[in-house]
Amino acid sequence: MLHVSNPTPFSAARIRETVQEILAAGVLPPIVQAGHPVLRQQAAAFDGQLDSTELAALIALMREVMHDAPGVGLAAPQLGIPLQLAVLEDQYDVDAEISAVRGRSPLEFFAVINPAYRPVGNGSAAFYEGCLSLHGLQAVVARHESVRLDFTDPSGTARQQEFSGWQARIVQHETDHLHGILYIDRAELRSLSNNAEYGARWAHPGIDLARQELGFLPGGPAI
C-alpha cells in the first residue's frame, strides 16, 4: 500500500504568491527534482486560489515547460506549486510497432484540475516509463490499462472521460503527482535503468527481454 502523503503546508495566499513570482520571472522555471518535499505532499485542491487570467497564464507556461523538457505531461508540483493542476499532451512521432504494442496514440493537449481516476475493467499493462522529476532514469511500472478520469476543466466545467493504453498511463502518472506519488513508488525497482542503459538494452516495444535479464515480474504474462 502506498504511503499517504501529508497535505501541503502552503496557504491559498502562498500558492498564489508562488504562481505570481513564477509568471513574473519571464523565464521557464526549472522542473523540481525528486527529493524536494513538494513532490511528496498532497497538493491543494483548486478552489479559486488563482483568478482566471492567472490560471490561463500558468497553464500556458506549464505547456511550454512540458514541450521544452520534452515530456507528455507536467503537474504543477513539478514547478514547486502544490496545486491540483496538470497538463497533458502526446503528439510525438513513435515507431509503428512500439505504438501498437504499447497502445500509444496521439493525445490532444488538455489541462485537468482536481483529477481522480479509477480503473475500467481489470486489465493492466507493464512498460518502462520515466519522469521529468527523476531525470535520466526509467523503470517498469504496471498500471491500469483503462481508466475513467473525473476532473474539472479550466472553464470550471466538471468532466468525465475514459482513457486506455498509453493515454491512460499518462493520466495516471500525472494524477499521482498531485497526491505525492512518484512512478518509482509503483515501479519494479529491479528494472530501474539510466537512460543510456535503457536506450542501449531495453528500448524495445515490450519488456520481455528486460524482465528476463534483470529478473523482475518472474512468471508474469508477456507484455
Rank of each mutant, 00 (worst) to 15 (best):
S5H: 03
A60M: 10
R63Q: 14
L178S: 01
R14P: 03
R118V: 10
T8A: 01
I59M: 03
I59D: 02
Q138F: 11
G219H: 13
R118Q: 15
G48E: 10
Q160F: 04
A200F: 10
A34R: 15
G71V: 01
V147M: 04
S11G: 07
I81A: 00
F163A: 03
V72M: 12
L55K: 07
L61V: 14
G103R: 05
R159T: 02
A142S: 15
A96L: 14
R16M: 03
L50R: 14
D90R: 06
F163N: 03
D208C: 08
T8Y: 02
N194S: 14
G206I: 03
A60H: 11
D51P: 06
S52D: 14
F109E: 04
L58E: 13
L23F: 03
E174T: 12
F163R: 02
Q42D: 04
H67F: 13
D93H: 11
F109A: 07
A34N: 12
V27M: 06
S124D: 15
E174K: 05
E108G: 09
G48K: 04
T157D: 10
A69F: 09
E97T: 13
L79V: 00
L2M: 15
A222S: 15
D176I: 04
F127Y: 10
A203V: 05
H144T: 10
N114G: 05
D150C: 08
P82G: 07
V65W: 00
P205G: 05
E213A: 10
G73Y: 01
I31C: 12
A57V: 08
Q212A: 08
S105N: 15
F110K: 11
E17P: 06
V147Q: 01
A111I: 13
Q78D: 01
L214T: 06
V4Q: 12
I22D: 02
E188I: 09
Q138V: 06
Q41L: 07
D176T: 07
P37E: 00
V101D: 04
E174Q: 07
N114D: 14
D153E: 08
D68Y: 12
L61Y: 10
L182I: 00
I31N: 13
L182Y: 01
M62S: 05
F10A: 08
G156F: 00
S52F: 09
L74P: 00
A13H: 09
G123N: 12
L28K: 01
P106C: 15
F151M: 01
L107S: 05
G165N: 02
N194T: 11
E97V: 10
E145A: 13
V87L: 04
I81H: 00
L209G: 08
L39W: 00
E17L: 09
A222E: 12
P82M: 12
A111D: 01
R104W: 14
E17H: 10
E129F: 13
S146V: 11
L2K: 11
I59Q: 07
I22M: 07
L88H: 02
L23Y: 02
R186G: 02
L88M: 13
D93V: 07
P37S: 05
F163S: 04
L55F: 05
S155D: 13
A57T: 03
R159W: 06
R201E: 08
F163V: 02
I184F: 04
P30N: 06
F216V: 03
N114T: 07
I113W: 11
H36W: 10
G73V: 10
Y128D: 01
Q49C: 13
H144Y: 15
L50Y: 10
A45Q: 14
P115V: 01
I223D: 14
G48W: 07
H67S: 12
D93F: 08
G199I: 11
P7W: 02
P7K: 04
